[in-house]
Amino acid sequence: MVYLILNNSSNLDIRSIFFNVISILTGTGYVNAQFDNWGGFPLLLFLGLMFIGGCAGSTTCGVKIFRIQILWSFVGNQLKKIIYPKGIFVLKYDKNPIDNKFVSSIISFIYMYLIIFFIITALLSLTGLDFITSISGAATSISNVGPGLGSVIGPNGNFSSLPDISKWILTLGMILGRLELFAILVLFLPSFWRN
């Protein structure tokens, strides 16, 4: 957002920057400008923003902020361990120590999120969509944002012209992302159905 305000090259007003960033970040998907015409970096920025999402226990989607916070402090601790191999660093979230099993489930969540994102991107491009449409379509469906990027499914575009098979893939992405991936994936484990 700061970058967009500073690099005000294409006569963007602060109002539309704020609005679109908040809307995409939280996975709402309201738009008031063609933000994909803002240039190369903003395009990438919006793609990244789509993943973040809001807080847990709200109506938003995406990776969710608490996971990113915990991942950051985890990475920070790993770095400290390199310098002080014998040090003990307790991972804290809001002043409470976090058990390692939470951290591992968060890391596996983020890992699966990226894997599924790439699989959906690949499947979409197999159905004949161009690169920017498939990558942003995958991001927008798994993070439940709404509009994608590019000329087809961009902010003022819509998904009607996509082939039917792409729509089904996107639908799958939506329900996977909405139900936090594992709630769906676990159903495909054979051991889930065994007693």
Partner: peptide, 29 residues
């Protein structure tokens, strides 16, 4: 509308939309 909130072209509507989006993205508990 196809232009989404941009259709209304009103700063105040956008500001109130932002406020309520943020309220919706806070943990409801």
């Amino acid at each position: 509308y196809n232009e989404s909130i941009g259709f209304f072209d009103s700063v105040y509507i956008e500001i109130s939309a932002m406020i309520f989006i943020i309220l919706g993205s806070l943990p409801f508990i």
